[in-house]
Design a binder for these strands. Structure first.
Lengths: 126, 126
DNA sequence: ATAATATGCAAGTATTTGCTTACAAATATA
DNA sequence: TATATTTGTAAGCAAATACTTGCATATTAT
């Protein structure tokens, strides 16, 4: 059962993403988390273990209870990875926008009667 | 084999993340991608299928080749999800910083020689 | 037309995942 | 102390994953 254990893997599961959302604001103990889901406590326990193994969760023992606190900073790894591509896709969108605007400008120019030149010159589809 | 198929799942696999990185700048055909990896072409083909099924990849047929183009915008889903938490964790950091600064201020006030008081009072290492 | 190339699809396998039930251990409460 | 509560660990299982090898199909080049 020695598997790859990283943040990307951890957040791939929708239940685990829900757990993160559930405890993002304040630490919650295991049973309280489990009660929110249809699956067994043990199943949730395993999810918590996975979150914990990749550093997304810190479990603080408090008597017989365990308070689960999410370490949101760990998500920075994902943020950074996505961010590099966000730059690219927004860059592309900007470039596209610029291109479209440039085209508009050109076609306006083309449409506009050009000073001292017959319009007939530019009429075939190039 | 009808499985959950979403972006989070797709980027969970390191090979798929590598593929994304590989074709982020320009579309690449299947074999060229496969050549970069140790695993078989068929294995890569499956990864591409998964990426495609969740909308991260667009495959354009070009003769007998298939150009794989990544749809980076699809990563926005991940970006948004992480972003909401980034706000929280940076918020917490800001709050912490503010708290620490406030504490510093307080302790300086306490340490600070009161007007008209000899400087000698502050000479120990604090 | 024939051979080479690019790729998909199918079958088979080992590993991992997500879950369940059953049992054990530690702590709190009556 | 006896009992209830909170949680972990272990065993078992079905489904999904990540691969592999082998074969089929469409294009392109000779």
């Amino acid at each position: 059962m020695e598997a790859r254990r990283d943040v990307f893997q951890a957040i791939a599961d929708p239940t685990r993403r829900e757990i993160i959302g559930m405890i993002a604001r304040q630490p919650v103990n295991v049973n309280t988390i489990a009660d929110q889901f249809d699956v067994s406590r043990q199943a949730i326990s395993l999810h918590l273990k996975i979150l914990s193994e990749c550093g997304l969760l810190h479990i603080k023992q408090s008597g017989r209870e365990r308070l689960c606190e999410v370490k949101l900073e760990k998500l920075n790894e994902v943020h950074e990875w996505v961010q590099q591509y966000k730059k690219m896709w927004t860059g592309k969108l900007k470039a596209l926008k610029a291109f479209v605007e440039q085209e508009e400008l050109q076609s306006k120019k083309a449409d506009a009667p050009i000073k001292k030149q017959s319009k007939k010159i530019r009429n075939g589809k190039s």
